[in-house]
Amino acid sequence: MRILLIEDDKKVASFILKGLTESGYAVDVSHDGSKGLILAEEEPYDLVIIDWMLPGKDGLGVCKSLRMSKPDLPILFLTAKDDISDKVTGLDAGADDYLTKPFSFLELLARIRTLMRRGTRLTEVLAVDDLEMNLGERKVYRGGQFIDLSNKEFAILEFLLRNKNRLITRTEMTEHVWNIQFDRGTNLIDVYINYLRKKLDTGTKKPLIHTVRGAGYTIKDTV
């Protein structure tokens, strides 16, 4: 899942980037409001985190513009302002959620998960056949058996599961699982899909990840 973080304070941005990356998200950071807005409009992010006080264009302005161009994009607002009126202003500008600094990083993660699953399912568990992914615990089970996945593997599987029974192109995959620095010329996706297949499908009668030749991958329970 790709996240854009627009936060001017480099130290704040740095730990959020580190924490989110370690949690399996592909994160881009912008320290400037207007540049952040351009990035958010061009790249297919799954969620944008915006700080209120920003140089260039302030968080509210970014939020409003982004709401116009991408009405469905989840937006999480970060701010040091904690007045009820500030919250209302933030939410009215189009933010889906609001976190006041200093926030708990675990809460930030939980809210990101909530926003991500909004409009899909009200559960933290994604499943196909006997494969289950618990997003809260960040654990994957196949037939009740725990499968240890790396962050990237987890992210790819999550993206596939969120779009199960649908063809995912390599481009889509890179856009949602890797951040903007990803070199699209590599075959890294195929490598990771191989890892995932080994871990998930080995020793089972029913492979779940399928290659659509020349197009991409899909996850489905019917052959």
Binding site: D9, V12, G19, E22, P102, F103, S104, F105
Partner: peptide, 22 residues
């Protein structure tokens, strides 16, 4: 004051939480 303290406290808390996460 509260704003100025919030930012460093966010940094402290966030770094500690991320640091402890693994």
């Amino acid at each position: 004051v509260s704003h100025e303290l919030r930012t460093p406290l966010t940094i402290l808390r966030g770094n500690i939480e991320v640091g402890l996460s693994r």
